[in-house]
């Protein structure tokens, strides 16, 4: 009996020893900084003179900050227009790759590659392609359009950034591919017997069965857009006229250009609340459209 208790205590101690790196990291790089950022968000702090408590002033001033609003609207644009496009494109790519034809692995390998290209290099590639005399202007020139100043146009730069993201969908389509493989084939066989064509099979079998994967990829893509920085910064420093300034880029400017760290941390917290609300909203509505196999008995 006593030895059993002893071994139990030892197991507990061993558990804490093994997870201690994570506990230390959690306190030092996560919980601590998080706490600091809450406190500082109520102060005026420029990293040189001591912080000064100003209550909710940072949060209030954001309400009247046109550039903050613009960056928020840009991020919302990416969330509401970019996310559905990217996720739909991920799914389409996965469907194309889900064919067991000869040499499919060759295609899968190359389709995935753009995902691994460093983001800065991706931007370089697309700067070249979208250039004034670049290939894209040349191609659309054939049908009499353009040439456009793609990365210098207020209306075009956000779509340009979305297409860059669509090019690097490797991870998303792999997850969809795994989801598609999980759909039981007997469902398709039954549908075929009932005379359903490819389109109806897609609508009535494939789509409902992969809704958990769609949910996962939707949320991942939203979070990615909320954290987007590199594309906007490297492409045109958030310009022209702040048209591609994302939320995080604006926060970066607030902290490291204006040296208003308190305001920047207030922005981080508002972003956190927005992300939480949007994720929560997606999860909440998901009850109505996501199908989990384990619910079958209900």
């Amino acid at each position: 009996m006593l030895s059993k208790i002893k071994s139990g205590i030892r197991q507990n101690i061993m558990f804490y020893i093994f997870i201690s790196p994570w506990i230390i990291g959690f306190l030092a790089f996560f919980a601590g900084p998080t706490l600091i950022s809450i406190i500082y968000s109520f102060t005026e702090y420029n990293s040189i003179t001591p912080a000064e408590w100003i209550g909710f002033k940072n949060y209030e001033s954001l309400l009247h900050d046109p550039i903050f609003k613009k960056s928020l609207m840009n991020t919302i644009y990416f969330i509401f227009i970019g996310t559905p496009l990217v996720v739909a494109f991920q799914l389409a790519t996965a469907m194309v790759l889900n064919n067991e034809v000869k040499g499919i692995n060759f295609f899968r390998t190359l389709y995935y590659l753009p995902y691994l290209v460093p983001t800065v290099a991706t931007v370089v590639i697309w700067i070249i392609l979208y250039g004034k005399t670049g290939v894209i202007n040349q191609i659309i020139g054939v049908v009499g359009l353009g040439p456009y100043e793609w990365t210098g146009d207020v209306h075009l730069i956000k779509p340009v950034i979305i297409t860059m993201g669509m090019w690097a969908v490797g991870n998303g389509f792999l997850i969809f591919l795994a989801g598609l493989k999980g759909v039981p084939t007997h469902l398709y066989e039954a549908a075929k017997i009932d005379g359903a064509g490819s389109f109806r099979q897609f609508i009535h079998i494939t789509l409902p069965m992969i809704t958990p994967t769609i949910l996962f990829n939707l949320i991942m893509q939203c979070i990615q857009y909320f954290q987007m920085f590199t594309e906007s910064y490297v492409l045109n420093k958030g310009g022209p006229d702040y048209a591609s300034t994302t939320y995080l880029l604006n926060t970066y400017n607030t902290a490291f250009k204006d040296f208003d760290f308190g305001l920047a941390m207030a922005q981080s917290w508002i972003l956190f609340i927005i992300i939480f609300l949007i994720t929560f909203a997606i999860m909440k509505t998901s009850d109505n459209w996501v199908y989990y196999e384990s619910d079958k008995g209900r």
């Binding site: 997870i19 994570w22 959690f26 790089f29 996560f30 601590g32 900084p33 998080t34 600091i36 950022s37 500082y40 990293s47 979070i223 909320f226 954290q227 995080l248 926060t251 902290a255 760290f261 920047a264 941390m265 981080s268 917290w269 972003l271 956190f272 992300i275 994720t279």
Partner: peptide, 23 residues
């Protein structure tokens, strides 16, 4: 503890980035 590990996955990095910079 495992739940906390998973929860940290959800929190965007930027929240801690600026305080980490200061530290």
């Amino acid at each position: 503890f495992f739940s906390i590990v998973l929860a940290t996955l959800m929190v965007p990095e930027q929240i801690t980035l600026i305080p980490l910079f200061i530290i």
